[in-house]
């Protein structure tokens, strides 16, 4: 566990050693702040809640998460530090977990920095802060699940652009799987069980349940298993590369 912490700290220090982290946080906050107003009808709804804000998270993450996750392993491969890392007395799982936790912490930090939104709605009216808290947790879980997917693709290639694109495409599929457009199309052509399966696989569906104010066991299981599966996958891919 101590090694995981050491590795995570190193990874995180790498984020802040260059302007990358600050540029990321800047754009993140601008988008998070502007989108709900520009596209979500934040004012027009005349309701004091953050529903439009959280509805944008899955879409914003489509761009922001791959940008964070692409460098997790691809960068180490490109610079050759992966050879150093893998010959140090740390296990593959400590590396995978340490890097993932650093990235997750970083997106969590970005999320925390959006707290002025909470202050704003509390100033404008009387929102249900319990729902807001649940939505934040949901968004954080979503970020974790998506980062784990990104970790898998970053482990698979030394090219960061490829890692970004693959993560983006898979993320898009995960989001779209819960979109009414897709669900309408799927319904009727395939058994209802399949429709349900597709829907429950979607980031949107999982986010929506949580945005209702309840973090139910299913959502936790969903993101939890997604994270575990993708991290195990990352480890397997990295181990396979060793023999290549």
């Amino acid at each position: 566990m101590k090694n995981v912490w050491t590795l995570a700290r190193r990874e995180l220090s790498g984020y802040f050693a260059t302007p990358v982290a600050y540029v990321f946080l800047f754009f993140y906050l601008v988008f998070m702040g502007v989108m709900p107003f520009a596209l979500g009808g934040f004012y027009e709804r005349e309701q004091a809640d953050l529903v439009p804000f959280f509805q944008f998270h899955p879409w914003l993450y489509l761009f922001l998460i791959p940008a964070v996750s692409m460098r997790l392993w691809a960068e180490e491969r490109k610079s050759g530090t992966v050879e150093l890392l893998m010959t140090l007395p740390v296990t593959l799982w400590q590396m995978v977990l340490g890097k993932f936790l650093a990235a997750w912490f970083f997106t969590g930090l970005a999320l925390v920095l959006t707290f002025p939104m909470v202050i704003t709605v509390n100033f404008l009216g009387k929102p249900d802060n319990g729902v807001i808290l649940a939505s934040y947790i949901g968004s954080f879980l979503l970020a974790g699940g998506y980062l784990a997917v990104g970790s898998l693709f970053s482990a698979s290639t030394k090219n960061q652009v490829i890692a970004f694109v693959l993560t983006f495409v898979v993320g898009l599929l995960f989001v779209l799987a819960g979109h009414p457009f897709v669900l309408d199309w799927v319904t009727g052509t395939v058994p209802a069980a399949v429709t349900d399966a597709v829907r429950s696989f979607s980031f949107l569906t999982q986010m929506n349940t949580i945005s209702g104010g309840v973090i139910d066991v299913r959502a936790l299981t969903y993101f939890g298993s997604l994270i575990v599966a993708c991290l195990i996958g990352s480890g397997i891919v990295l181990d396979m590369k060793k023999a290549a």
């Binding site: 190193r10 220090s13 790498g14 050693a17 260059t18 610079s79 050759g80 530090t81 050879e83 150093l84 010959t87």
Partner: peptide, 13 residues
């Protein structure tokens, strides 16, 4: 103790 070819190190540190 191992010095890999090209002495890779985290360049931002």
């Amino acid at each position: 103790g191992y010095l890999p070819e090209g002495a890779p190190a985290y360049s931002d540190m």
